[in-house]
Amino acid sequence: MDALAQLGPVMPQLLRGFLATLELAAVALVLGTAGGVVLGCLYAWGGKLLRALLFALLTLVRGIPLVVQVFAVFFVLPVYGIKFSAMASAAIALTGFAALTTMEVVRGGIAAVPREQFQAARSLGFPFTTALTTVVLPQALRIMTPALVNQAVFLVKATSVVSLFGVTEFMFTAKEQIERTLLGFEIMAIVWIVYTVVCYPMTLLGRRIESRLKARGHAALAGP
């Protein structure tokens, strides 16, 4: 009972942290996914040089722990006079990471769509981008959905690394409150439940999207 009473005043703090996490995750997810789709298309259809550059970046991002990448944005960029607020730095680091890892998913998805599909569209007179958006990408999306959902869930949880750099998101506020109240077990339980509650529906949503994409045809022409 004592613990519950103590937890009461902690909640508003945790909520604030949680909202910061949501914001961070939303920015990284939306911008990262959009960027990843663009980069994936560039990778699949761009020139050799661009491909080499993107591959080098991807290798870098894959080879370096996420913490170190965030560290780089927080402490190395300022050395070159590029400074952002803590929250912005966190968003930039996570978005960059999301964009490059999504690029790899998108590239794989596009590569899995037979080239003949694109050619058939071109032979009918589809302009390049129309062929891409109506024929290749919808099929690639169906292939990519599981990987993209996985990626999104991972990203939501990965936002917690920026707590190490003093960004007051969920994990950071939780640690702060644990130090203040010493309710380690209780607060960590809350953290666990909240992350699960956020991530589980994402997985379900992914499943839904997957089966919808499988069942329906081209949305633009559906209906009477």
Binding site: Q117, Q119, S123, Q139, L221
Partner: peptide, 14 residues
């Protein structure tokens, strides 16, 4: 328009 040996219908459309 061209028609191919392997049909190449868009597989996500009816």
């Amino acid at each position: 328009c061209m028609v191919f040996q392997q049909f190449n219908l868009f597989s996500h459309m009816t």
